[in-house]
């Protein structure tokens, strides 16, 4: 069973400690940027900030983001009880970490605290993944419908690659690069978007078992970095540190491509 305490601890860790694989990539990117460039300076700020946040146990970013939970539970677990534990932990973390209250009632415009989004699946092992995903990186996330003549994108992986480059070009520095990017195909808008966001849970060194996708990930990441948008969009070699893809089945008539962006402080963790 997942307890309120364990979920609170997960919130605290994810909001205040950058995952080690992300930190390593930022350090590598920092070494790789030209001396004296704004890109190198921005990466220096990011690394310094992540260290301070961990030392002081404070949220790395003022934007709590939206907490996305991915819960895989065995059949004997109660989804209702897990949901209650997550909601209680969310309220406690908002008060005690503290986290910025971030959910706004769209009709009344009142701030109502933080509202986790919880996705359940059933399986043998109890697993919980958490993404705390900022509004800036969510605002540049998008879905394409192929074919798309505006970028010459057909219904194949080359078309998907063009979607990714177009999305990154349009995002520029608005979502706080260097990005982690999740890409997924699917038969419906929400399926492609959901699956692409789940790719952000994957670690930087997680190689896709599907060869066509691992090649796609490698090539597209290289192309993204050749755009030259750079850290914080101020120019440079590091526009993304990670790109992970998944291919969901589609309807014969549909071909959606979901693209989810994570900012440089890719806050993710697991129980």
């Amino acid at each position: 069973m997942i307890t309120e305490k364990a979920t609170f601890d997960l919130y605290k860790k994810v909001s205040t400690e950058l995952p080690t694989d992300v930190m390593s990539e930022l350090v590598r990117a920092h070494d790789n940027e030209e001396d004296g460039s704004l890109g190198k300076e921005s990466l220096g700020h990011m690394i310094d900030n992540a260290k301070k946040a961990a030392e002081l146990s404070r949220p790395m970013c003022q934007d709590t983001g939206t907490p996305f939970f991915y819960v895989n539970c065995p059949k004997e677990c109660s989804q209702k009880e897990i949901k209650e534990a997550i909601e209680k932990a969310t309220a406690k973390a908002t008060e005690e970490v503290p986290l910025r209250p971030n959910a706004v009632d769209t009709l009344t415009d009142k701030n109502v605290g933080n509202m986790p989004v919880i996705h359940f699946t059933e399986g043998n092992e109890l697993k919980v993944g958490l993404l705390m995903k900022g509004g800036g990186s969510e605002n540049v996330s998008t879905v394409y419908k192929l074919p798309d003549a505006s970028i010459g994108a057909g219904r194949d992986l080359e078309g998907v690659r063009r979607c990714v480059l177009d999305a990154v070009f349009k995002a520029q520095g608005k979502g706080c690069p260097p990005y982690s990017i999740g890409v997924a195909t699917g038969g419906s808008i929400e399926e492609a978007a959901h699956l692409s966001k789940m790719q952000l849970l994957r670690k930087v060194d997680d190689i896709n078992e599907e060869k066509a996708l691992s090649e796609f990930e490698e090539k597209t990441l290289r192309d993204v970095n050749n755009l030259g948008i750079g850290p914080m969009g101020l120019g440079g070699k590091s526009t993304a540190i990670s790109l992970k893809a998944a291919a969901g089945n589609r309807h014969p008539a549909t071909y959606f491509v979901g693209i989810s962006f994570g900012c440089w402080c890719m806050r993710r963790g697991q129980l």
Partner: peptide
């Protein structure tokens, strides 16, 4: 962070500047 559009660039002329801070470097700024 991230910059602003051409209408703002035009409005800044002779009057004001836009300064970029590093997104997410929130503890340092605090």
């Amino acid at each position: 962070k991230g910059g602003m559009d051409d209408s703002v660039l035009c409005a800044l002329k002779g009057r004001a500047v836009y300064l970029s801070a590093t997104g997410g470097a929130a503890v340092t700024y605090a």
